[in-house]
Design a protein around this nucleic acid. Sequence first.
RNA 1: CGGAGUGUAGCGCAGCUUGGUAGCGCAUCUGGUUUGGGACCAGAGGGUCGUAGGUUCGAAUCCUAUCACUCCGACCA
Length: 574
Amino acid sequence: MRTSQYLISTVKETPSDAEVVSHQLMLRAGMVRKVASGLYNWLPLGLRTLRKVERIVREEMDKSGAMEVLMPAIQPAELWEESGRWEMYGPELLRVKDRHNREFCVGPTHEEVITDLIRREIKSYKQLPANFYQIQTKFRDEIRPRFGIMRSREFIMKDAYSFHVGKESLQQTYDVMHQTYSNIFNRLGLDFRPVLADTGSIGGASSHEFHVLADSGEDDIAFSNVSDYAANVELAEALSPAGELPAATTEMTTVDTPNAKTIDELVKQFDLSIEKTVKTLIVVASDECEADFVALLVRGDHELNEIKAEKLAQVAEPLQFAEESQIRELIGAGPGSLGPVGLNIPVVVDRTVAKTSDFSAGANTDGQHYFGINWGRDVALPEVADIRNVVEGDPSPCGEGTIEIKRGIEVGHIFQLGQKYSQALDAKVLDQNGKAVVMDMGCYGIGVTRVVASAIEQNHDEGGIIWPESIAPFHIALIPLQYDKSNDVRQLTDQLYADLQQAGYDVIMDDRDKKTSPGVKFADMDLMGIPHRVVISPRGIEAGTLEYKGRRDDEKQDVQIEDLMSVLAERINL
RNA sequence: CGGAGUGUAGCGCAGCUUGGUAGCGCAUCUGGUUUGGGACCAGAGGGUCGUAGGUUCGAAUCCUAUCACUCCGACCA
């Protein structure tokens, strides 16, 4: 492209409503423009990168044996009613009516449509396994879109769905997709990790999320400092501390604590060790629990893991904390003064709490705590479960090393669905015995637009974006100086421009008018993240050289004109 | 939905307290001088001050309502 014929929409100042770097830089470099909350225009520059990401995803999916299809963005309500999700999905599902008043939704995902398609098309086990994917626009009416393209309402997703007879076949395709995703993110030049993920209410064998590591990520990932273990903190198991419950060393005493409503205040005012405090959280009980509420106990410095808590049989799903008024009515004390001793509702304690002696907790009377509580002696040990988030320094669940926590951006998710949708939609094939069996399914997603943002999060400096080669909108920026004045410069530049394109490179040549100073051109190309830059100047031509600089290089270097091709070939892996 | 904040030219902002003809920088356009890291000079265009009411001789400024957007929490690729 010649810049004189291309839309360069760079801006010097950072738009005030952009919070994260990727959003700021995408706006500054002129990749996207906002249309409304969570809705964006992709400008020519941004679209080039987006298309390159799509191409890599498509190539690797094809290589894996998956077949590309295209499903409609608008889906009929009937299918969603069949799967039960018309009721379940909630307000994130954008529902629309057509002129006949028939109900539809704008697809946030496509399990229903693909399952409906496949149950009509595939009749025999001989046609399985089969994996279908599409790269397509999704819509989720997020409560709060944010971070620009990272969490927008409309976005592009690669979604794939595989069909099987039997779990073994599903596991095989799942493994293939795991490898395919690794290949994709490697080619995209991202620093990523597959991490164990929560399988949610569906259950099933396993699920992995693929996270790009970045401080701006919205997820916490737990790593072992010695093994390959990585899991979303939502899922990572908090092991029971080693050893037996230490013996009691103090008597239980009642202490007046009128000004200690939080653990922090309690610890400060009474000089306690926070590891010897316990907090009591009251949540709504499930139908199968005999009581209306359940108490959950975690150590003062730990956090309740709501997903783990939700999985307890006694706890209502979704997790719901009791209101203060309900707590008062139930226990006769406020949330700041609760504890296990003398509590009249079912209690579940975290594993760490179960191994703690001489601890402090509320006395279930306003303004009073018990210090020196011991299990068995002062109150019977109730049910024990893993209900907290792991923290740095915990032993790794894999048995090796300790936990480290880093932030990640979820760019992919692979999941064994089992028969959740095939069952609901009655998607069956005939097996070897001529018997109709329900198919097993897997699903595999990549947030294509999100990949673009996360690549920037991982690759930028003060000057702007630094694209990984594979998704750079252009590989090479050709910057001629005095293009309009010097015939030599113009001829050589035009020649190089043609030759480089001939050699297969995407080249942007900055022939903007003489009013555009060299500094502006350098700054724009840096901001747009073009990985390689070649400057053509009258001075250089006289000496028979060009100037080359990689986007990450500190220094520019002179290159003999005739060597340029080989220098670039060495650095650019097409 | 709860909490916090912001709406003034394409972008970044000032003006509002104390009402009196809407301003600055960048960007854009014209002419000229420049040309190795966001040049300089001269000139020009561009804003119903988010919207609707109200108070007032007079409202960007005070009052009321409303809308939009951003940030913090629950959802997810």
